[in-house]
Design a protein around this nucleic acid. Sequence first.
DNA 1: TCGTAGTACTTCGAGTCCGATGTATTGTGT
DNA 2: ACACAATACATCGGACTCGAAGTACTACGA
Lengths: 173, 173
Amino acid sequence: MLELAILGFLYDHSLHGYELRKRITALTGHVRPVAESTLYPAIKRLEKAGLLARETQPGAVAAPRHVLSLTDAGRNELRRRLAEPARADITDENRWFTVLAFLRHLDEASAQAAVLRRRLDFLQEPASFFYEGDRPLRAEELDDPFRQGILTIARATSRAELAWLRKTLASLG
Amino acid sequence: MLELAILGFLYDHSLHGYELRKRITALTGHVRPVAESTLYPAIKRLEKAGLLARETQPGAVAAPRHVLSLTDAGRNELRRRLAEPARADITDENRWFTVLAFLRHLDEASAQAAVLRRRLDFLQEPASFFYEGDRPLRAEELDDPFRQGILTIARATSRAELAWLRKTLASLG
DNA sequence: TCGTAGTACTTCGAGTCCGATGTATTGTGT
DNA sequence: ACACAATACATCGGACTCGAAGTACTACGA
């Protein structure tokens, strides 16, 4: 997730870690903030794996900056992760949004459409949060107003996303 | 999150680990499955902290079951976690849904309302995913269809949840 | 000139999670 | 009679994450 965001942001521009941090915070920080002590080790991991390169600049403002850029292997890896997301990247909205945020980096519309279709399939699975035996319960069948809320909100999200997915899939041809 | 779900499910009934696992899977498993090797250590943690008690039954169906039940400390701890959720429990939808799933266990409507109000405040903060400088961008200003999708879906969710929150807060008095 | 805020990165330890693997029992199909 | 699935729990190592603290430098107001 974090790694995907790092690769995704660096695909467009080289950035130093601090700027990267600000962009990741803007993207997902209001939901799930990223600690510095998580970001910098992640950068090191990716660097060690040969996915990104580091060039140290003398500090213009403060401490020396490490300007990061994707290697060819890094670009390939980003495309691979976007084209073949893990199951959790499809099902978990937080992860899914990160995939969506960078999906334009896939070159082919058909590959983009394939990813959207996986999300579509997932949303169409008959899944609920609450069951009676094996039968999924509908909001109206619950007497707990908070659990009703969960189903109400999830249904609204699902509806909106299905509409958007179908529209976008149609426009991708 | 996991711990909250364990405490929440055990508030109503004593359950053995395997049954607990099935209920947690039903609740959040389609989004984020819980591995057995995560659940059982979590149970041990809570037991060690004195929040739940274990009674071993001879295996009716298979291996001996450990029937788990909340101690008084466990009941207090659940109510405490529900009444004073961490920031991430409010902002991350996955965690928030878990709080909602058990919020009825808070005795007082005013305490329930206070939690809902925290979510309301969060949703009303002007936050986006994409910025131009400091200014949040609207869906129409993006030319990336996938990023437009993120904003479109997030807005639909937000609208539905705000409506539900206001309705429910009104009915809580 | 002194404190504070912001930039930019690092280290450490503790906790948490997961995949893989293992053990033991009962029920079901063939 | 035997394999296999399901029940039920446990252990282990490796990876990831976080909070706390630290380093170091610049800019700016009082």
